[in-house]
Design a binder for these strands. Structure first.
Length: 870
RNA sequence: GCGCGAGUGGCGAAAUGGUAACCGCAGGGGUCUCAAAAACCCCCGGAGGAAACUCCUUGCCGGUUCGAGUCCGGCCUCGCGCACCA
């Protein structure tokens, strides 16, 4: 850099280093983005929200892409006359804070608040139109106290309950692990073999709303289809039957086994009954049969990890018990099987190997009978047999007594009717969705506001004693739950009897924190969880933007919370997020010092690209291996931080590149060349302003009208693109306008373009404003010296309809569907005139010569097509 | 296995059933400069041709249509999600 040496020769530059902070201050001082909790006036509201970040310490490019998209929408909608709420906060509870505490002895609160301060400053340098007055962090008692109140209201409404459930237990860390924290049957951090353990946990009864959550997906017409499909799959509705089998010999007090099936029509093809290892009958057997106990213990050691279950071979243990068939004079063996899930249905199944692949695999392994009872269309009953594949398609029922000759669907109905008449079963809808276990044995989370009293049982913390605050002096330097082993925190008097009692030491799953924050934003300082008038006005969120990774859990839990809050009178909307947009990831090339495992990963900063496409190390000059473009990750060191980019190029350049590269729902590749290109463009736009001529308005020439036409078409095109989230298309149209202004600039003063150029440059700046807000303010203020208006407060430009209409249209002329030429005609030229003009176009005429026209297609202002013969 | 989405120049991509490849990135050539950077101009899907222009080209095969990247059917590949849910 030779700054200072060649200053005089430097072209005028947009000095973002001083301009960007200046305009950020101007927006803040003018409180441009401030809105009331309950606005007056008749402007329509628009609530833009990006998924709030976990305060890990730094804003990364993925965050930035998320927030810039939201900011473009927010700024655009503001200009379109909406009162826009655009808040920001922090999803501030979570494990990394505890890990930092454990590893470095910093209290999670300090670690978290320090990170928030740093990240807030980073966000502010991006120039987002955020309303910081609404900011909060979920780790603040002023937030989580209200969450405790919500939970207690849910509990009183019967939406929360305590029940036993099987969990992944890490015996070393002394905590419950989520399924994704179990890797190859071991705890992700301790490496200890994970056990299945039954614990008493708090649950929110999301299953009460399973049907509604499923049905209402149809109303979410501004959600991506795939998210709705993923949620529908997750909810997993199935129709079937529940029925009882009598044991031939009672086992202790148990004389029946209840089974759930979606294929009651295959009941006559039964060959065995299988129990989950955790089934009560399995447990009863284990008490007297050591081999059964051993088998169950083996299954338990495999953990509940889904991946483990998937890859595990089907295995079973023949208990020697037998059950009687409800409709046949026959008995079938009872097995304990590792593939039967206690959590789904009744924890027991009847096996019909001919028509279920899992049952078939199991039957073949243990030599159990396989009797087909559904005959595929066109097959012969005498010759039809089952090979390695179960038959699961439609067909005619055979070998099934009163069901014979019915089709599958009729058969299901007939069996259910029969079961109900005999009082041994009934039709039932079942769900894959389970109740939401919210208890976590963590010290850095929202305390569950319950008290356990030896005399009174579970007692809620009275509302006037909320919030239940975390202790300031919790210790994180040993395993287990810090709240549990805190010397005093949990010991309280029972609110009911006054006797000694202890607090619930579990804290909420952090998904609880993020399930209602969007509602809290509407009245962030209220002394109730949400102010009714505020949420009635602002909810639902009009545009929610975030990563696809939250397609199921966060969004489904939030949808549940809104329903639960509605039932408990906190709000009155059907859905939290009317519009959802899922943005793609940011990716980058990865670099290694050498091919294969010997190479160590290098940061992009350490690598210099060569003109030949290769790359070398910045300091050593050694060859660098350029690897795949992939999601940024710390382990591959292919991360890029926004801060240095903003310092070097400015926030507007980074914002412009982020929006220009590709459609926002796809992954974008971050490249140095791309940022540099965006920077050149930002500077070029600024120069268009610097080069504007002075002088009287003279916008009457043809050239001036042509430029004005382009300007106004750009207004229309950019508007349409932004409405449709096609930010990259908006950017392309703005490049075209800038190119057109550049052409006009070269055409010079002689063409009488002064006014048209001024108009074009101003429109360019204002249309770019959602993407490059600082540049827009800087240019606008220079074009209007002394004006006090900010672009942030200006309405969106309107396109002049007269200028949108084309003066001439270019019509493509095809012969037999192949382009043979184009003609220019005035808009709406008649069919006859257009066809006549088309026929005399030289190249078209040549193609038509000697041929007979059998058909003439004429689409006004678009195309002509001659169909010929001979 | 089931479900969803996507396949278009060297790359990111654009295209209400109507001129495929706008715009950008990279690359090449040029102007300016002692030189470079910056800036600006030109070229840039493939083949043929001096040119005019012609032919081919949106993963593959068919279909509908005057006309298909776009609609329909069947396949292939990649990505994502779910998955022993009875």
């Amino acid at each position: 850099m030779n700054e200072g040496v060649t200053v005089a020769a430097e072209p005028p530059r947009f000095d973002f280093r001083q301009a960007e902070p200046r305009w950020q201050r101007a927006w803040a001082e003018r409180r441009c983005f401030r809105v009331a909790d309950v606005p007056t006036g008749n402007k329509p509201k628009y609530y833009v929200l990006e998924m709030f970040p976990y305060p890990s310490g730094n804003i990364h490019i993925g965050h930035m892409r998320n927030y810039v998209m939201g900011d473009v929408v927010a700024r655009y909608k503001r200009a379109r006359g909406y009162t826009v709420m655009h808040p920001m906060g922090w999803d501030a509870f979570g494990l990394p804070a505890e890990n930092a505490a454990r590893e470095r002895g910093i209290h999670p609160a300090k670690w978290t608040w320090d990170n928030i301060a740093a990240m807030r400053a980073e966000l502010q340098r991006i120039g987002l139109s955020l309303e910081w007055e609404r900011e909060f962090a979920t780790c603040d008692p002023a937030y989580y106290g209200h969450q405790q109140k919500l939970f207690l209201d849910f509990w009183r409404a019967g939406l929360a309950e305590r029940k036993e459930s099987w969990v992944n237990w890490d015996p070393v860390d002394g905590t419950v692990l989520a399924n994704e924290q179990v890797i190859d049957g071991r705890g992700w951090r301790s490496g200890a073999v994970v056990e299945k353990k039954q614990l008493s946990q708090w649950f929110l009864k999301i299953t009460d709303y399973a049907q509604e959550l499923l049905d209402a997906l149809a109303t979410l017409d501004r959600w991506p289809e795939r998210v709705r499909v993923m949620q529908a799959n997750w909810i997993g509705r199935s129709e079937g039957a529940r029925l009882n089998f009598s044991l031939a010999q009672p086992e202790g007090a148990i004389d029946q086994v209840e089974v759930y099936t979606t294929r009651p029509d295959t009941l006559f093809g039964m060959s065995f009954l299988a129990l989950a290892p955790e089934h009560p009958l399995s447990a009863a057997l284990a008490a007297r049969d050591p081999k059964a106990a051993e088998f169950i213990a083996e299954c338990r050691r495999m953990g509940t990890s889904e991946a483990t279950i998937e890859t595990a071979e089907k295995r079973g243990y023949d208990t020697g018990l037998r059950v009687r068939h409800p409709f046949m004079d026959a008995a079938f063996p009872v097995w304990i099987a590792n593939f039967v899930l206690m959590e789904y249905g009744t924890g027991a199944i009847f096996g019909c190997p001919a028509h279920d692949q899992r049952d078939l695999d199991f039957a073949r392994k243990y030599g159990l009978s396989v009797l087909p009872v559904v005959l595929p269309p066109g097959a012969e009953a005498v010759s039809f047999t089952i090979g390695d594949d179960a038959y699961v398609g439609p067909g005619t029922i055979i070998n099934s007594d009163f069901l014979n000759n019915a089709d599958v669907e009729t058969g299901k109905r007939l069996v259910i009717r029969e079961l109900e008449q005999r009082h041994i079963g009934r039709g039932e809808v079942n769900w894959r969705l389970r109740d939401w276990g919210v208890s976590r044995q963590r010290g850095w989370g929202c305390p569950i506001p319950m008290i356990h009293c030896g005399a009174c049982g579970v007692v809620p913390v009275p509302d006037d004693q909320l919030p239940v605050k975390l202790p300031d002096d919790a210790r994180f330097d040993r395993p287990g739950n810090p709240l549990d082993h805190h010397p005093t925190w949990k010991h309280v008097a029972c609110p009911q009897c006054g006797g000694p009692a202890s607090r619930e030491t579990d804290t909420f799953d952090t998904f609880v924190d993020s399930s209602w924050y969007f509602a809290r934003f509407c009245s962030p300082h209220a002394d109730v969880p949400v102010e009714r008038k505020a949420v009635d006005h602002w909810l639902p969120v009009d545009q929610y933007i975030g990563g696809i990774e939250h397609a199921i859990l966060h969004l489904l839990y939030s949808r549940f919370f809104v329903r639960a809050m509605k039932r408990t009178g906190h709000l009155n909307v059907e859905e939290p997020f009317a519009g959802l947009f899922t943005q793609g990831m940011v990716t980058h090339e990865s670099y290694r010092s050498a091919p294969g495992p010997n190479g160590i990963w290098l940061y992009p900063d350490e690598v210099v690209k060569q003109p030949d496409g290769g790359a070398v190390h910045r300091s050593t000059g050694d060859q660098v291996v350029v690897g795949r473009v992939e999601a940024m990750s710390k382990s591959k060191r292919n991360t890029v931080a926004p801060e240095p980019i903003i310092a070097r190029y400015g926030a507007d350049t980074a914002r412009w590149f982020i929006m220009s590269d590709n459609p926002p729902d796809r992954d974008m590749e971050w490249t140095e060349a791309g940022v540099a290109g965006a920077s050149r463009f930002v500077q070029r736009v600024f120069r268009l302003l610097e080069n504007l001529p002075d002088g009287p308005d003279d916008g009457t020439s043809d050239a001036a009208r042509a430029l004005r036409r382009i300007s106004h078409r750009t207004v229309a095109a950019v508007t349409e693109a932004l409405e449709g989230f096609a930010f990259n298309v908006a950017v392309a149209r703005l490049y075209e306008l800038a190119n057109a202004i550049g052409d006009a600039e070269r055409a010079g003063q002689a063409s009488g373009l002064t006014a048209a150029r001024r108009e074009a440059v101003e429109l360019l700046a204002r249309l770019m404003a959602p993407m490059t807000p600082h540049l827009a303010e800087e240019m606008y203020s220079r074009m209007h010296p002394g004006a006090t208006a900010l672009v942030a407060d200006l309405p969106w430009p309107d396109a002049d309809p007269d200028l949108l209409a084309a003066e001439t249209v270019t019509i493509a002329v095809q012969v037999m569907g192949k382009l043979r030429g184009t003609i220019a005609v005035p808009p709406d030229t008649s069919r006859d005139e257009t066809l006549a003009a088309a026929k005399v176009e030289a190249n078209v005429a040549r193609a038509l010569r000697g041929k007979r026209i059998v058909k003439e297609i004429y689409v006004p202002n678009r195309i002509v097509n001659f169909v010929i013969a001979g």
